[in-house]
Design a protein around this nucleic acid. Structure first.
Lengths: 136, 136
DNA sequence: CTTGAACCTCTAGTGACTAGAGATCCTATC
DNA sequence: GATAGGATCTCTAGTCACTAGAGGTTCAAG
């Protein structure tokens, strides 16, 4: 039986965040001490590790909730793989978009020659999307 | 003089978003018609283009606000370049992180052999961060 | 038994919008 | 001039995943 603080230290998840996960239905309401404080069991630790790991991978709480359900009632893991595949393609799309932005920003920054008194090429370019090569 | 709807169509920024930008201090309060509707001038169109472009590049409203101030009172563009440089390094860090997540997720998905009845390797791996190679 | 760290609940704030209710305005047509 | 209906107005509340703070209670060590 851990207190919420011990659980927090064991998982690296902050105390208010654990309470938030409970309210959000990801963590089950734990037992309470005589005075009303939360008391967690081993299974809660594992569950919170699972959540923390998923969050670390960038999964939404919704996706994690879904995965937890699948985990709870075992069996078919097609859905789990679909969630992972969906997330993977999200990640790839985000990488591609960020790389386009990177290129564009580099170009904008170079458009300015820093001449004293002259208008800033970077700011000018921001005002005129027509100068851009790609979309964003 | 455009209505908010025309401004919206001209820039691709949705009507409620324009009002939000006004409230957030990015767009100045425009003139009003006799009946109290917003009426925009050419300068507003340019300003909104600037904002939309910055947002498209992933800049925060705060960064854009700052750039607008610099643009308003011209002169030195060191600050503008610093904002851009900061954003660029943010973008690069995010790309690097997403690439680590991509690798890790691919690995997790492959850890499962989909054997019917067997526990899902993907879900197991999510429960045990110790199996991971990198950090996330 | 006392101290003080840890815990409790509740509310509100973050960023950048989005959605909806209910009322008013503007413009084109008759 | 009347009317229809699309556009606009303000205001509130919701999104996501937390974070911060107030004000009060409980627990564990000494």
């Amino acid at each position: 039986m851990f207190s919420i603080g011990r659980l927090s230290r064991a998982t690296g998840v902050k105390v208010p965040t654990i309470r938030y996960y409970e309210e959000a239905g990801l963590m089950p309401p734990p037992e309470r001490s005589a005075g009303g404080q939360r008391r967690y069991a081993r299974a809660d630790l594992d569950r919170l590790h699972f959540i923390a790991h998923g969050r670390g991978l960038g999964l939404s709480l919704d996706a994690i909730r879904h995965l937890l359900e699948l985990s709870d009632k075992g069996r078919d893991c097609t859905d789990a793989h679909q969630i992972a595949a969906q997330h993977l393609s999200d990640i790839r799309a985000r990488i591609a978009r960020l790389q386009r932005l990177e290129t564009e920003l580099e170009r904008l920054a170079e458009a300015c020659d820093h001449a004293p008194g002259a208008p800033c090429g970077l700011i000018e370019a921001l005002g005129d999307h027509g100068q851009c090569l790609g979309e964003h």
